[in-house]
């Protein structure tokens, strides 16, 4: 693991610990209004300052992080399961079913996704579970394609044939071999999808279509902080910082995972790079391209 990835992983862990631990340790209840300290800057009593009605911002940032991360993780997990299932079935069954299933994926690719999220929320109301489902229903398309391609490759692999000859059922083969082999790329993909989901949730919340008070999320805190960007900059700075750190580190960690776990990208780490290319003698039978 290189330094950059280590920094990112450390920050990510820090944010995670903060969101979980801060509400437990903080002396302030997330809903408690301190009437004597409405929109006050960071101080020894309120480390992150207070929000627009005098609630402790540190506690609310952590609570918001719990919501944002829960939504992101739930939606991504749903997405991942959906994509795994769809891709594996399409790839394994093949033939007409594969064609139809992948065409459905193509159709969904044409949906302008942020528009769809907004539409879903407008149509079905401001229910966090629908937000999970809506986001989860959209982000799985890439994964379905990845998994299908892998499954297709594997279907013709020798060990699958061996398993089949040994009398294993199709379901068993998919579960045992295919899923195990796509787990790596799927994990990398999941990590790389997280930022997108976090950002989508924050925009939906920014429009006022996300979860409702007294619950909160980073998007909501940012939306509240923007009008006070000058008069109470801390109300924007802390949630925005937390969101940016999370998205940045998840992206870096995801990149790392993909470089190492996705066979399509393995050459990035195992390949020669420029320096190695220069130092290595070319194989003699280089196919004259």
């Amino acid at each position: 693991m290189d330094t950059l990835t280590r920094i990112a992983a450390g920050l990510l862990l820090g944010v995670f610990v903060f969101t979980v631990a801060a509400p437990l340790i903080s002396p302030w209840d997330a809903d408690h209004i301190d009437w004597s300290a409405i929109e006050t800057p960071p101080s020894s009593t309120h480390w992150f300052g207070t929000d627009l009605v005098g609630r402790d911002l540190l506690t609310r940032c952590a609570l918001a992080g719990q919501t944002s991360l829960t939504i992101a993780l739930t939606a991504t997990t749903l997405s991942a399961l959906n994509g795994l299932f769809w891709g594996a079935v399409a790839g394994y069954v093949g033939g007409r079913a594969d064609l139809v299933m992948m065409r459905i994926v193509d159709v969904l690719y044409g949906l302008p996704f942020i528009l769809v999220v907004i539409l879903l929320v407008v149509v079905f109301g401001q229910n966090p579970f629908l937000l999970f489902a809506g986001l989860g229903a959209i982000f799985w398309l890439d994964l379905a394609r990845i998994v299908r391609a892998q499954t297709l490759q594997m279907r013709s692999a020798a060990f699958i044939d061996a398993a089949r000859l040994a009398g294993a059922s199709g379901f068993w083969i998919v579960r045992r071999h295919v899923l195990r082999n796509v787990a790596g790329p799927a994990l990398a993909w999941t990590t790389l999808t997280l930022p997108g989901v976090i950002l989508a949730e924050s925009f939906v919340s920014f429009l006022g279509l996300g979860v409702q008070e007294p619950a909160t999320s980073w998007g909501i805190l940012i939306a509240d902080g923007v009008p006070s960007i000058e008069s109470a900059p801390w109300t924007l700075l802390f949630p925005a910082g937390l969101l940016a750190i999370s998205v940045w580190s998840v992206g870096i960690v995801g990149d790392h995972l993909r470089d190492h776990l996705d066979p399509l990208h393995r050459s990035v780490t195992q390949g020669p790079g420029l320096r190695h290319a220069r130092e290595t003698q070319p194989p003699k039978q280089g196919n004259g391209s």
Partner: peptide
């Protein structure tokens, strides 16, 4: 309805009711 001023108002009312 939506809006940051409305939000302040609603939150404060929730505080009064508390």
């Amino acid at each position: 309805f939506s809006g940051s001023e409305t939000k302040r108002t609603l939150l404060a009312i929730a505080g009064f009711l508390d």
